[in-house]
């Protein structure tokens, strides 16, 4: 049986997205949360590239992917900066401490 590469890529997207979402759902460490965020976004980037391949507009999709990666890196940097501040003020990176605002 010859596997259609598109199916493989789709499976990869699903896997990455699943891992990312699970990470967001289950991790309590801020760094792990940011990593999970990254994985989820990378799933999306992979999906964009695959979409370009599927629709035959690979050029557009590649420039799209690069743009997304750049922007995503900015977001990650911002997140890490925030993490630094959290470590400084709370003394730990445990997201469970960040639950004073409720009700």
């Amino acid at each position: 049986m010859i596997l259609d590469p598109l199916i493989l890529v789709t499976a990869g997207v699903c896997l990455l997205a699943g891992v990312g979402l699970y990470g967001l759902l289950a991790s309590r460490n801020l760094i792990k949360l940011i990593v999970a965020m990254q994985i989820l976004t990378k799933a999306a980037v992979l999906a964009l590239v695959a979409a370009g391949a599927a629709s035959g507009r690979i050029n557009l999709s590649q420039s799209l992917a690069i743009t997304v990666i750049v922007v995503d890196t900015v977001v990650a940097a911002v997140g890490l900066a925030l993490g630094v501040q959290v470590r400084k003020r709370f003394g730990s990176l445990d997201a469970a401490n960040l639950a004073s605002l409720r009700r």
């Binding site: 997207v13 997205a17 999306a44 999906a47 979409a51 507009r57």
Partner: peptide, 11 residues
């Protein structure tokens, strides 16, 4: 982004 990929891929 995932939504965009779906639209882009199919259309």
């Amino acid at each position: 982004l995932l939504g965009i990929a779906l639209v882009f891929g199919t259309t």
